[in-house]
Design a protein around this nucleic acid. Structure first.
Length: 691
DNA sequence: GCAGTCGGCTTTTTT
DNA sequence: AGCCGACTGC
């Protein structure tokens, strides 16, 4: 059942192997079979490491390999994302390089907050040195913590010199190089004192471990396989280097046409440099697509043919043509777009018998789906949304986790701050004082120090219960579920004080408790929540839902019907990406990934009018510009369009200013579709109120 | 001096 | 849902 190219990958021996796998070429199946074949040849499955980049890809791969291995009664313990494997290894062996095995994991918002705090002195210093603020109000202030966080993370992932990083991400802050350097150093000191590792630290620490003198004693893996290699960065390549010192049983699978994580420091160079880095390397292609109709692949091929760089490739459909070309639907507004998609999905579901789980709507960024979500709710179509804000990013979940973290790692400044700030009358200043007091005492005396803190009057009523909650956490034999139960009992009154819609949040936290019951220790529970498990994945009724997903989260997935939103300038390509050419090419690859998710039917939507609410309740209407990716050559392969024949429509003629459709001379920037505050808020109220 | 609340404005993508 | 500035109250 495997074709000749696939069999070659499965049969390949022990040398390093690079598989260039086109979209839909069955790479997950092939990886699973190769893993099984290696085990069949005597590899200990406990010493096989399977690495992916995203949790969804990890879950999918795990499921497939496990399915093959279960027949042989085998288990595969080491499969996951780079980050999750790093956490497991560092919990066990991090002590060898000076890492507290009880370290906290700082997720993105944690590190953003801590970095913001660490940078405060720099921001203040600057404010003090430049008091006269002439014409420009806050045009050019000290970067906000979100920008700091992106700069820092990009540097840690690319390991480029700071000036280069600033030039690429935030060139306006070039003059602050030294201040930024000091802020980052202060952040690193705070992290260290907190016994906390952020996402980037996890990868760095793993590589440090592999480069340490203890590496030889920690040869845990006899074979390594990596999925989506085009999305790895040099740091991850360094980890592979360390993993494969003594052997070359390294299989790497990737497709340069699907590289969509450059913004995180991933580089296509990794896959291009692989043959040199791990020489000698065998290179095997997978070129037959088993997913899509030839009509869909023709359109994807045409899109890729216009990329400014990359391996030329043409996908060929094993299924052949299906007799249905992809469609471009031009719609008047975003609202019409939402209605059109809802109608199309209803027709497919109820008249053509295509189940909802076989249909998906994909979009560039999470907020682009807001209007669609409303339309779907109105039509009572159940959906599951992937991408954008995650479960663990919601305030109430972070709060509950903070209490558990305080107990697991008493040095955790971020967690203590969060926990203390929930108490009435306690703000940033008091929380900071409490943290300082805690840091000055050894963890054994935690209970005493806690009891000795001078709470403001308003917080006094919560004092007893707080102490009780921590006692319950420390009780012998307290497992994850018991710990969380104690925390929630204490936390619910605070939750009700702090947030809107407390009932929904409480329900969500009760769900969390069901999840906690699956774990023995609180630490395993927290680790999985942050770096492994996706609670949405196994939501009940998952199978009966339509999928809404960011394109990033859709990678590796497939559906019979795929709808793609907002094929307009500012939508796809997205607004912020239009400034430099490299980012535009990443947007093109995103569209390529999105299009190649479809098996039978692919529909792109292009609204022509952008409606934004203005202050006072009015609506401003402005024309959208069609996405530059829909060139005449691409559109010739689509049905539909403004007058039913895409290629002939004057809207898509080259620009009169001589730019044409060449990417390098594309028309000037136009801002993208954005839900204005008013619209966004209205939507939220509606959503919350209706749920 | 500190905490808390309200109104107005803005949100790429993932671990 | 966060951020910022403005304002209120202890």
């Amino acid at each position: 059942m495997l074709n000749a190219q696939q069999q070659a990958v499965v049969a390949h021996g022990d040398g390093a192997l690079l598989v260039i796998a086109g979209a839909g070429s069955g790479k997950t199946t092939v990886m699973a079979h190769r893993a099984a074949a290696l085990i069949g040849r005597g590899l200990d499955p406990g010493r096989l490491l399977l690495l992916t980049f995203t949790r969804r890809a990890a879950n999918e791969l795990k499921r497939r390999v496990a399915g093959l291995l279960r027949d042989q009664g085998l288990d595969l313990p080491w499969a996951g994302t780079f980050h999750s494997v790093a956490v497991r290894l560092l919990r066990r062996h991090g002590g060898l390089i000076g890492i507290d095995p009880g370290f906290s994991i700082l997720d993105e918002s944690d590190s953003r907050d801590l970095l913001g705090l660490a940078a405060e002195p720099e921001a203040e210093r600057e404010a003090a040195e430049t008091p006269p603020n002439p014409a420009a109000p806050d045009q050019d202030g000290f970067p906000p913590k979100g920008v700091l966080c992106r700069l820092y993370s990009y540097q840690r992932n690319t390991e480029l010199p700071l000036p280069e990083v600033i030039a690429r991400i935030a060139p306006t802050h070039a003059k602050r190089q030294e201040a930024l350097q000091r802020a980052f150093a202060a952040y690193e000191a705070r992290k260290k004192a907190s016994h906390g590792l952020d996402f980037d630290d996890l990868l760095h620490a793993w590589r440090d471990l592999l480069r340490s003198p203890h590496a030889a004693a920690l040869e845990l893996f006899d074979a390594v396989m990596v999925d989506e290699y085009q999305d790895t960065n040099t740091l991850q390549a360094g980890i592979l280097d360390g993993l494969c010192r003594r052997h070359r049983r390294l299989t790497v699978v990737g497709d340069d046409a699907q590289a969509i994580y450059a913004f995180r420091g991933a580089t296509v160079e990794n896959i291009l440099a692989f043959p040199d880095q791990f020489a000698p390397v065998s290179l095997l292609p997978l070129e037959t697509n088993y997913r899509s109709s030839q009509e869909i692949l023709d359109a994807a091929n045409a899109l890729w043919a216009e990329a400014t760089r990359g391996y030329r490739k043409r996908l060929t459909a094993a299924r052949g043509p299906l007799g249905e070309r992809p469609r471009l639907e031009t719609v008047e507004t975003d609202w019409r777009q939402a209605e059109a998609i809802t109608a199309a999905i209803e027709i497919a579901c109820y008249r053509e018998g295509v189940p909802l789980r076989e249909q998906a709507v994909l979009f560039r960024s999470s907020h682009q789906a807001f209007r669609l979500e409303m339309a779907l709710q109105k039509a009572r179509i159940p959906y599951q949304k992937y991408g954008g804000q995650r479960f663990t990013d919601t305030a109430h979940v972070k709060d509950a986790m903070a209490f558990l973290r305080c107990h697991e790692n008493p040095h955790d400044e971020t967690a203590w701050r969060r926990a203390f700030s929930l108490l009435p009358g306690v703000g940033p200043a008091s929380a900071g004082r409490f943290v300082t007091a805690l840091a000055a005492t050894p963890p054994e005396q935690l209970a005493d120090t806690l009891a000795g803190l001078r709470f403001p009057a308003k917080a006094q009523p919560f004092r007893e219960d707080l102490l009780k909650a921590f006692q319950a956490l420390a009780a012998p034999g307290a497992d994850a579920a018991a710990g969380l139960a104690a925390v929630l009992e204490f936390y619910f009154p605070l939750l009700r004080r702090h947030y809107d819609q407390p009932a929904e949040r409480e329900t969500a936290l009760r769900e969390l408790q069901v999840l906690a019951a699956r774990y023995h220790t609180t630490r395993e529970f927290l680790d999985d929540l942050l770096v492994n498990h996706d609670p949405d994945e196994d939501a009940p009724g998952h199978d009966g839902h339509l999928t809404l997903s960011t394109i990033h989260s859709a990678k590796g997935c497939e559906w019979r019907h795929v709808h793609i939103l907002n094929l307009v300038e500012g939508g796809l390509p997205s607004g912020p990406s239009q400034e430099d050419g490299g980012q535009i090419e990443e947007e093109r690859r995103l569209l390529y990934v999105a299009m190649t998710r479809a098996k039978d039917r692919l529909v792109l939507y292009q609204p022509s009018i952008r409606e934004t609410a203005v202050a006072g309740g009015g609506v401003k209407r402005a024309p959208y510009k069609p996405s530059r990716f829909l060139s005449p050559a691409v559109l010739a392969l689509f049905d539909g369009g403004p007058d039913g024949s895409c290629a002939a429509d004057p809207v898509y003629e080259p620009e009169p200013d001589g730019g044409g459709w060449e990417i390098r001379s594309s028309p000037p920037v136009e801002t993208g579709p954005r839900a204005t505050s008013r619209q966004a808020r209205r939507r939220r109220e509606w959503r919350w109120g209706d749920e």
